[in-house]
């Protein structure tokens, strides 16, 4: 188990290094002038630009810059945002928790919803219920998340007026609502973006859960469980369900990249102040340090997702433990 963990961590470190290298090369080789905000860039003369470039070391060869960047990174230094004139760690540190909140709620909801739908389908295999749910989950899985977000916004935000249409908090909320009131406010704002991401992801998980459960229901140990007189529900949940859990957990871990992608789009739809939006703005502003650090965080999250999935699988299914 330890050897496995070490190998996986080494691969993850290699991947993150690859992400940092590729992103660093991309942003530095791309055309365009970094450093200054749009308005500043308009009226800056070449001397100001040269001074700015020298200040951040951008006038040196790219290999030297990369060496400096890695050395700083090793000390935990992510540099300064060119545009916001603040440390990158602070800029991303404010946005990351918002994205993690959105992503975690969406992942948990999509996992529960997907496993529930897939289980009902497997239990009612071949009936009209199965057919309807199959089409439903295929449609969810085939829907563009950003468009689904707009549709939910239109229905629940505007037509019914139940939920707020943008942001993470209500700017007009009174000061004295207290922590509980503030949490409820965030929850109300979270509902639509999280539902958007969860529905799309649940479609994929339901399709997978159904397949895994149908496979498991055909296995010998399930026949044994039935033969000894267990109720169909107990067989489905305890015996087949346990065995089907491993592939679905893997899928849930592997859906981290899809959730990150989705969050870039969904954050833009709902004005959610997360990593996606910060990264998007930073790319357009050529804010090198923010872009590279954001890519690194995305790489770490993806690697972490697949590692956690492997550990969860090992826990759920003893046959798949790496040292077994």
């Amino acid at each position: 188990m330890l050897g496995f963990l070490a190998r996986r961590l080494a691969l993850a470190a290699l991947t993150v290094l690859a992400v940092v290298t590729i992103t660093f090369a991309l942003v530095h080789l791309a055309p365009g002038e970094p450093m200054l905000g749009n308005a500043e860039r308009m009226r800056a003369d070449s001397a100001t630009i040269a001074r700015q470039r020298a200040r951040f070391g951008l006038d040196r060869p790219i290999a030297t810059q990369f060496a400096f960047y890695l050395a700083n990174l090793a000390r935990g230094e992510l540099g300064e945002s060119f545009v916001r004139h603040r440390p990158v760690a602070l800029v991303l540190g404010e946005a990351l928790p918002n994205t993690l909140l959105l992503g975690a709620v969406a992942l948990a909801a999509s996992f529960l919803l997907g496993v529930a739908i897939g289980s009902v389908q497997a239990a009612r295999r071949g009936t009209w219920v199965d057919g309807v749910l199959s089409i439903g989950s295929l449609a969810c899985y085939s829907t563009p998340s950003f468009w689904l977000g707009l549709v939910l916004l239109l229905v629940f935000g505007q037509q019914l007026g139940w939920l707020p249409v943008a942001g993470m908090t209500d700017p007009a909320a009174p000061e004295h609502v207290g922590p509980l009131g503030r949490a409820l406010d965030v929850l109300r704002h979270l509902l639509l973006p999280a539902a958007t991401l969860a529905l799309v992801n649940a479609g994929a998980i339901a399709r997978f859960e159904r397949g895994a459960l149908v496979d498991a229901l055909g296995a010998e140990f399930v026949r044994t469980a039935r033969a000894k007189g267990l109720s169909p529900a107990a067989v489905l949940v305890k015996h087949a369900g346990r065995s089907a859990l491993a592939p679905v957990l893997t899928l849930a871990g592997l859906s981290v990249p899809a959730l990150l992608t989705g969050s870039v789009l969904v954050e833009s739809v709902f004005g959610w102040p997360g990593m996606g939006r910060v990264t998007y703005e930073a790319i357009f502003a050529r804010d090198y340090n923010v872009v590279t650090a954001a890519a690194m965080i995305a790489g770490i999250l993806v690697a972490l997702g697949s590692l956690l999935a492997d550990l969860a699988v090992a826990r759920a299914d003893p046959r798949q433990r790496p040292d077994a």
Binding site: L11, A12, L14, T15, A18, V19, I22, T23, L26, V27, A30, P31, G32, P257, L260, T261, V264, T279, Y280, I283, F284, R286, V291, A294, A295, A298, G299, V302, A303, S306
Partner: peptide, 23 residues
């Protein structure tokens, strides 16, 4: 296959986003 393992873990959309926006 090691190369593919690393490549699979790259944040694809992020990289595409960066390339399309920078050029």
């Amino acid at each position: 296959m090691r190369g593919v393992d690393v490549a699979l873990a790259l944040p694809r959309v992020f990289l595409l986003l960066a390339v399309f926006a920078l050029w």
